[in-house]
Write a protein that binds this DNA or RNA. Structure first.
Lengths: 312, 312
DNA sequence: GACTTCTGTGAGATTTCATCACATGGCCCG
DNA sequence: CGGGCCATGTGATGAAATCTCACAGAAGTC
């Protein structure tokens, strides 16, 4: 009687990566394998469990409810394992440590990092994903990227450098969108999806809408932006998502944003220690500001945002 | 830039099983492989990590500090994964569900289960490991095994059937034992190891000792009995361990109990719903009582307990 | 309607993993 | 102190899992 009767752990890892990224190709990149390997692993897992984890056409793959549930439990478990693995003592110079919101790292920072590396090949950057509190000293953080929202506290001795505006708007699956009127009232009547990372998203957005809005039929909270986005793609409801995170999914048609995007009250800031920010951290901060300046804005008019493949 | 740079998950699983059992052979049984496979996996893991996870002679292998830390983080992570995996809808008759303390299951219940199966081949038993609260209805539990301690609450409608006395005493590694006098005072001056599962262990035991006892130099708490035992074997300090759990380790010389064992205030009880315990649950409870009666007691005198291979 | 993007899949190569059998080292016992 | 016992380490070998490559299919874009 074996205590643990688990399916292949490698298959679970592949599935978890797929669930976070929403596309097998990206999961394959993360795990340094081909997309075929991911496809096989997920199929294998579904066979073994006897449960469908994905659904929809190949080009717009979504998670099923079971898949979303499984992935949400797997992510923190793998995080825990990753955190526990003792790192061999680092040789060489200390890298520049950047603490960053996980989804922002995945969807914005890491894709742009090669440009920083190209400009400063001598600076090794290590991205630590975290959205919690931190301490420059004890965690060895040189620079942190966070949302600036009311009531959130950072280490007292932080200098805030906003480097990107925050545009957000309601996003949902095209199938769900087809069932309602593309108006604020129509959108707001649907189930609402929230994220623990930035619970103010919905209320921030709704405050800017004119007129009275209906109450949602239900609400649901997710631990991470990426699962919020996957839940929206799966048709579970409407999420208020940041433009930067959903751009790709809008372009591919997995999501639609019938009301476009508006500037939110938050902004994305780089935090550096008030005294003694390292020269490398300053370089990185300046680079963030420049990248933020050149990151495309969402199309200004609601109509244009709907299905356009704008950006990139 | 892969987000997760984890060592082989299979190796981590093998190591976690080894850490829980304290012996590769048992871990191999759990995972249904040979001891050689476990040995290779752990060696592989150590190579990959560049950190020693085990130490000591082959016949008395212990965890290093790094190994203990890693294992303590891995266990809940794997538990989480296991809990998240959707089970295919169970065919056939519902098994008898027994909720049991993890270490008790591992060290006492599961080794004896074959005898129950032999007597009642028609009853399928499923052991759920848990030391938390539970509900007969919602968790589908037929019978639960818990420690009866003051202040602990069970479902209100529980019938308690004590089926085994609890003998416990301080245990520590022979190396550490050699550095002190084998007296209560000598033992108590060492670092104390506690478990969250039964934090009263030390105070229960100390209350029964005559005279004033010195204060410990330090204290440390573990989430599970099995890590408490491994920590003691690693020489981190003294644990007050239940006779039933450390019997094997005493016999093999990994641990020593210079003061023997005394009856603790707790006892081990079977909990069944006051009304409507299933006939199968009653059968199982009666079997537990009988097995408890025939489980050997620790040797009564302190001297005899030290290195004897008594029991079994 | 050609082009792009992403996933599914067959065949074959490769890596990983486990087994078997035996060696080794520590310990107990007489 | 040497034989027996127990648990782990290891070389050789085979099986299984996993990956890659190349191509096909499906959906969407322009």
């Amino acid at each position: 009687m074996a205590r643990r009767a688990l399916p292949s752990l490698n298959a679970l890892r592949a599935f978890e990566a797929f669930a976070r990224h929403g596309r097998m190709t990206l999961a394959a990149d993360e795990l340094c394998v081909t997309h075929g390997a991911i496809s096989r692993q997920i199929r294998h897992l579904e066979d073994q469990l006897g449960v469908a984890l994905t659904e929809g056409p190949r080009s717009r793959l979504r998670l099923t409810a079971e898949g979303l549930g499984l992935a949400q439990a797997l992510s923190p478990a793998f995080d825990q394992i990753e955190a526990a693995v003792p790192r061999p003592p680092q040789a060489g110079p200390r890298p520049l440590v950047v603490s960053c919101l996980p989804t922002f790292a995945m969807k914005w920072l890491i894709p742009r990092l090669p440009r920083f590396q190209a400009a400063h090949p001598d600076i090794a950057v290590r991205v630590m994903e975290s959205n919690g509190p931190f301490d420059y000293q004890t965690d060895g953080v040189d620079l942190a990227i966070r949302m600036r929202v009311a009531g959130q506290t950072y280490p007292a001795d932080s200098a805030e450098t906003p480097f990107m505006d925050h545009f957000h708007g309601p996003v949902l699956s095209p199938e769900l969108a087809a069932t309602i009127e593309p108006t604020p009232a129509g959108i707001c009547a649907l189930p609402r999806l929230h994220t623990r990372t930035f619970p103010e998203g919905w209320s921030d957005w709704a405050r800017k809408m004119p007129g009275d809005l209906p109450n949602p039929v239900s609400e649901q909270e997710f631990d991470h932006y990426f699962y919020l986005i996957e839940a929206a793609a799966a048709g579970l409801g409407v999420a208020v998502g940041p433009w930067a995170f959903v751009q790709r999914d809008l372009a591919s048609g997995r999501l639609t944003a019938p009301l476009g995007f508006i500037a939110g009250e938050a902004s994305i800031v780089a935090l550096t220690p008030l005294s003694g920010a390292s020269p490398r951290a300053v370089l990185f901060r300046d680079w963030l500001v420049e990248e933020g300046r050149t990151t495309p804005r969402p199309p200004p008019s609601p109509e244009a945002a709907c299905h356009s493949g704008a950006g990139r």
